[in-house]
Design a protein around this nucleic acid. Structure first.
Lengths: 114, 114
DNA sequence: CGCACTGTATGATGCTCATCGAACACTCTG
DNA sequence: CAGAGTGTTCGATGAGCATCATACAGTGCG
């Protein structure tokens, strides 16, 4: 049997990891997508752990949304925690800002995404 | 006859344009590429207008290099000027920094691109 | 003029990635 | 246990893009 987080594990997926040493390209690529920018902005407008994935209103299906959250998590932008059947989210503001000062502010500040 | 810059014009290509109101996604996408990051960094290490396109040592052919410069120009990161058969380049530091404060610093500061 | 040099445009190719539908896994409640 | 709700994984599909080879268009020099 493999590692499991207290809540859901979904197949043999390892515990949710949230890296601190993200390469620059990974961070830029993660933010260079309109859907992910929207996710990050929505997240910034709500308290930590107050939103589960299904609460985000983006124009893609569940599968794509799940994929985007995985990308954001791999980029160190989002932390996820399982709570019952839901997966709650939190923007890693300070952590990401420590790694890439000003980048998150830029993504949140600007109104015209494209 | 169409507009021409004093130097080369290449077919009916309009005068080289360098936008100021770049969308956020355009800027992030332009920087989310290892070759373009390298071009920007090389450019930052040399005086304005001191490098022509062929002076940049990136592991791609001439066509791809030309394409990358076009992307950087469209993102407002690079200004180009024709000088005889060469096309000289300049990093639009202040202009880009005014539009996206800190972003260029991040691209230049970090050593580990990927 | 003819040639070398520089850079762009075009067409083709291959790869990455965003997306979807469907199946699956887990949790909780009735 | 059965069913609803939530989210992930898988396979397939399509679009976009990075790249190349080639052809083309300027510039300047002999």
């Amino acid at each position: 049997m493999t590692d499991r987080t207290p809540g859901r594990s979904h197949r043999a997926a390892p515990v949710l990891t949230h890296p601190d040493d993200v390469p620059l390209l990974t961070a830029l690529t993660a933010l260079a997508d309109p859907v992910r920018i929207q996710l990050v902005r929505t997240l910034a407008d709500h308290p930590d752990w107050s939103l589960s994935c299904s609460n985000f209103d983006v124009p893609v299906g569940r599968a794509a949304k799940s994929h985007h959250f995985a990308v954001l998590r791999a980029a160190g932008l989002v932390e996820q925690r399982d709570d019952g059947p839901k997966r709650l989210n939190r923007l890693r503001r300070e952590e990401f800002d420590a790694r890439f000062p000003g980048l998150l502010d830029l993504a949140l500040r600007d109104d015209e995404v494209s």
